[in-house]
Design a protein around this nucleic acid. Structure first.
Length: 418
DNA sequence: TCTGGGGTCCTAGGACCC
DNA sequence: TCTGGGGTCCTAGGACCC
């Protein structure tokens, strides 16, 4: 029996989260901005209709915001992550086999479902709406790539009412002919240019392309995409997500940073966040890379990285911060206006399988107790403990001028009904 | 003047080994 | 003047995803 995938995708996810707690903006144009209020990262349908593009810098569309009274929000990741958890929990009641693909998307295996798959999809859609307040679209097909396409069409064409099942479509080719090749999952900007140059303009064209030629130009990933469009499954459901291979914490600065001490504070803060994530996931890092950069948009950009390998894989924040500060000393340059830095943890291994070093003189037991104490306290308080190396004033912090409250994760921010 | 953050996989090429 | 061949491992960079 062949597979059946459903792709459930929240519509305009960040915008929809804001609307759940602010019904007044229901039919207005709404956008959510990235960190530092830099770029547009989510748009309501009304905002899309105004021609506001995905990823455009906010300052470029400022007059559109003003002219059309667009509701503009800073990112509120705490809220979005919590709402995402609610959606995923709801979806998990509909199938035992589910893959959380991103903050707002999940693949479900609907292999064993009797009766109409479209009806089942509509039930999922109604339930998510009722339990979380969020609208979703659902695409159903025999491969993930086709489910993505079905989802895309379900979202765009009102006549499907948010659910499209391609498994019983009489002519999938007819559907694929309506889909521009750049909308296919796995086809990005570079591939689109090459494909169009070769006369391949639609998903249907791509599904009929010569596999040898595809292999030469786009490698095995391209070949898999072609087979998936033909209905041959190349990507299984990953319901047991493989262990993480890296952890990155990086941020743009709210204002350019020029002093070494401030750069060290920022790097220390990111190392501390990265350490928290390591311990959350029960991992330890074999190496830490720090990178710094000036603006991408100036000539003579300075970008550089420095890596420290740990003798013994660690998830001790003290050790990560010490290494990060050392890296900044190597990377710092006078008269540079740094716009961003970041910490990357690599060589991740489960913390309970760390190979200890023969000449390791660190008191591992003590550091584990300290980290556990800090994590336990921070799980309970609304103002977490911070490391002195992170600095007190942090004037370089990114700006979130229009952020909403933590409606679902802080008692103090609970919405009030008048 | 303002331009995000966090991931994955694949490939080519170099280092190194026998 | 002649100067192998094949394998593995690692890394950097490209491309893509949300």
């Amino acid at each position: 029996m062949s597979e059946v995938f459903a792709l459930i995708d929240c519509n305009n996810f960040y915008v929809s989260c804001e609307r759940v707690f602010n019904p007044k903006i229901e039919s207005k144009p709404v956008v959510v901005l990235t960190n530092n209020d830099g770029c547009v990262v989510a748009r309501s349908n009304e905002a899309k209709a105004l021609g506001i593009g995905m990823g455009v810098p906010a300052f470029e569309v400022d007059d559109v915001f003003k002219k059309h009274n667009v509701e503009v929000f800073s990112s509120n990741y705490t809220l979005y992550a919590d709402m995402s958890g609610r959606v995923m929990e709801t979806l998990s009641t509909f199938t035992p086999a589910m893959e959380v693909y991103s903050i707002d998307e999940a693949f479900l295996n609907l292999g064993g479902i009797d009766g109409s798959l479209a009806d089942y999809g509509r039930r999922i859609r109604r339930t998510v709406r009722k339990w979380t307040g969020l609208p979703v679209s659902i695409g159903i097909a025999r491969t993930k790539t086709l489910a993505k396409i079905a989802n895309h069409i379900a979202k765009k064409s009102p006549r499907y009412d948010g659910v499209l099942d391609l498994t019983d479509a009489l002519d999938v080719g007819q559907v694929l002919a309506t889909v521009p090749v750049e909308k296919v999952w796995g086809i990005g900007i570079r591939s689109t240019i090459k494909l169009k140059r070769a006369g391949i303009n639609t998903a249907l064209d791509l599904s009929r392309a010569d596999v040898e030629w595809i292999k030469n130009c786009f490698g095995v990933i391209g070949v898999r995409t072609v087979y998936e469009l033909r209905g041959e499954c190349c990507y299984k459901l990953e319901d047991n997500p493989p262990a993480r291979k890296s952890i990155v914490v990086s941020r743009m600065f709210g204002v350019p940073v020029e002093s070494m001490e401030q750069l060290k504070e920022a790097a220390a803060g990111y190392a501390a966040r990265a350490g928290e994530r390591l311990r959350e996931q029960g991992l330890a890092a074999g190496a830490q890379t720090v990178f710094v950069t000036t603006s991408r948009f100036i000539k003579n950009r300075y970008f550089n990285t420095h890596t420290v390998e740990f003798a013994v894989p660690t998830n001790d924040t003290v050790e990560l911060i010490r290494a990060a500060r050392g890296s900044i000393e190597k990377l710092y340059r006078k008269n540079c206006r740094f716009k961003k830095c970041g910490v990357v943890l690599l060589g991740l291994v489960p913390e309970n399988r760390v190979q200890h070093g023969l000449f390791d003189d660190a008191d591992r037991e003590k550091s584990i107790r300290l980290m556990r104490a800090v994590d336990t306290i921070n799980a309970k308080v609304s103002t977490p403990l911070r490391w002195a190396a992170e600095g007190l004033c942090q004037s370089w912090q990114a700006k979130f001028r229009r952020r909403t409250k933590q409606f679902t994760t802080l008692f103090a921010d609970l919405p009030e009904v008048a």
